[in-house]
Write a protein that binds this DNA or RNA. Structure first.
Lengths: 331, 331
DNA sequence: TTGTATGCGTTATCAG
DNA sequence: CTGATAACGCATACAA
């Protein structure tokens, strides 16, 4: 079933069919138009995607690289991407890099091969300069997450520094003085900002802040869980988990050891995944607008694709403190 | 940067370049080979994906339709798909149908347009016959989930009937007699099997089973949460949630009303998402091998793509009871 | 109002 | 060992 078959069946030329099917057929008799359209339906003709793109020089595709699909934050992020893509007649191709550098590179190459029109990279383990070198060489616009200080390309961001400050302020205002942070081994820019923000508040109140206060562990439920013994050893009254997933793990670890949240130790998260509202006690956290971040990122990227010489774009989205039940006052 | 540019730069013909780059260049002098390879690297030549596929008649792409990306079961399912795809040099294009029929149809068409070589459809709201009509017409092999009784195409499945039986047996053995089921409004085949299996055990023990025992609510955390008032009204001693997400919602609802799991009411789930092991109390559930299901589905599909006249394939994966702490014995 | 001819970038065929 | 040429299916400039 090619355009030629359809043209033959309709008794017209391929040009006629092509034009009509692409909405440029005003000039043909409505009779011809109807006939072609009807025959297309009947024969189930679908233009060959590759042939079409070969001429059009566009795949209407954007590539998306996330570190972990199973993290609800990224699920929402992706849902935002899908919605915005759909609105703009683009299709996202999503890859879960699985926190694996080699895999990430492979996917990156694959996306280039497939001539993705643009990329959203929310995977932290690649070096920003590498990415830039590879992508600009191929003329592919892209948008980087977790690497906020890279001056390259457009930018969608939340003020993680402020996020860290909000967390610290809240915990201090609740009377906590002995604090611990749960952070990943591989500290990306956005995480660093959170920590720095947190530190700035501590410093402001002339409280000590040191490496000692941080426990390094993977940003997963399991990671949080595994950090609990260290956490207890620190005898803190509150812990700030750099994402909610970790906090869920901490909940479990504390509970298994007979400790209660927030009575024995207060827990604060970051992200505000939907689960945060379903655990007991409900998790106090900082809300990141994951869905909107995906949406806006996609919109910016597509604008850039459609107009490469647009001025640099920068969009900040708001963070928000969500007070629930996992932090106790005046310990 | 086309193959022609590269050929020119290397002082050879496009044929030479093409052959060498496609691993069919044994017959060329190793000098020529080296030169071409080196120049490709240097100039960063990447074969045009569309032109290539136009000739090769393959996109090395499979389409994937899931109802909800944010459900951990599907996250794992997708991770399985990605791994198996990667092993076979295929790329999955993933769509979250968002439990929306229209969206689903749109994505289905999009995947056909993009000449996906095969499809994995784990979205329940489409009619199996519609799908079959559309896809067989386009000669696209596919694999359906949640529609186990459809005799069409290959099949990867778990014995949901048995799953339902396992759940019922476990609850009955624990001494529960007053039971409630949380089920979705739109009951797909696999869900129906679970219910039937559950029913079969009740019947075997001459216990009543009726519509009255079922509460219809969305298969989400929120859905479970919203069903709690009805659940309490039924004065059951145990509830079987048709997936774990619902169970999480039930936990919260019960807790907010001062009821305790499992002391006041026992809760059982289905899926065994990783979260099940992190809630308090840990959720007793039926383990579905989501990751393997994705993997196996992908493998079967790709085999089918590569050999369309293969005999019908059928692969069953095991279910497993996972006993944790959310069901109390001898109430 | 319709059709012809050309080219997109690649691979495959076959002749040197 | 190498290269000229056809073909893939489509859209479009140009002709009629």
């Amino acid at each position: 079933m090619t355009i030629r078959d359809l043209a033959e069946a309709a008794g017209v030329s391929v040009t006629t069919v092509s034009q009509i099917l692409n909405g440029k057929g005003e000039r043909f008799s409505s009779d011809t138009q109807a006939r072609v359209l009807k025959l297309q339906e009947k024969l189930g003709y679908v233009p060959d995607y590759n042939a079409r793109n070969l001429i059009m020089r566009s795949t209407q595709t954007i590539g998306v690289l996330v570190p972990n699909l199973a993290n609800p934050f990224f699920s929402m992020f992706i849902k935002g991407i899908q919605l915005a893509s759909q609105d703009n007649k683009f299709i996202p191709i999503i890859f879960d890099a699985n926190q694996n550098q080699a895999l990430q590179n492979m996917y990156l190459e694959e996306l280039i091969k497939r001539a993705a029109n643009g990329l959203i990279i929310a995977s932290a383990t690649l070096d920003a300069n590498d990415i830039d070198r590879i992508l600009t060489r191929n003329g592919i616009p892209y948008l980087l997450f977790d690497q906020n200080d890279a001056q390259i390309g457009d930018r969608v961001w939340v003020d993680d520094y402020k996020g860290g400050q909000i967390a610290a302020n809240y915990l201090l205002a609740a009377g906590h003085r002995k604090l611990t942070l749960l952070v990943p081994d591989d500290i990306t820019q956005n995480i660093r900002q959170r920590i720095k923000g947190f530190e700035s508040v501590m410093t402001k109140y002339r409280l000590a802040f040191s490496e000692e206060m941080m426990i390094k562990t993977p940003m997963t439920k399991l990671g949080g869980y595994q950090a609990v013994d260290q956490l207890i050893a620190k005898q803190s009254t509150a812990v700030f988990c750099i994402n909610d997933e970790m906090a869920i793990g901490v909940y479990r670890g504390l509970q298994e050891r007979g400790l209660r949240v927030p009575d024995d130790i207060s827990v604060m998260g970051y992200d505000d995944i939907d689960l945060a509202n379903f655990v007991a006690p409900k998790l106090t956290t900082i809300h990141q607008p994951a869905f909107e971040m995906g949406q806006v990122a996609t919109e910016l990227l597509i604008e850039r694709i459609q107009n490469p010489r647009l001025p640099h774009q920068d969009k900040q989205l708001p963070l928000e403190l969500v007070v629930r039940d996992s932090v106790k006052s005046n310990p």
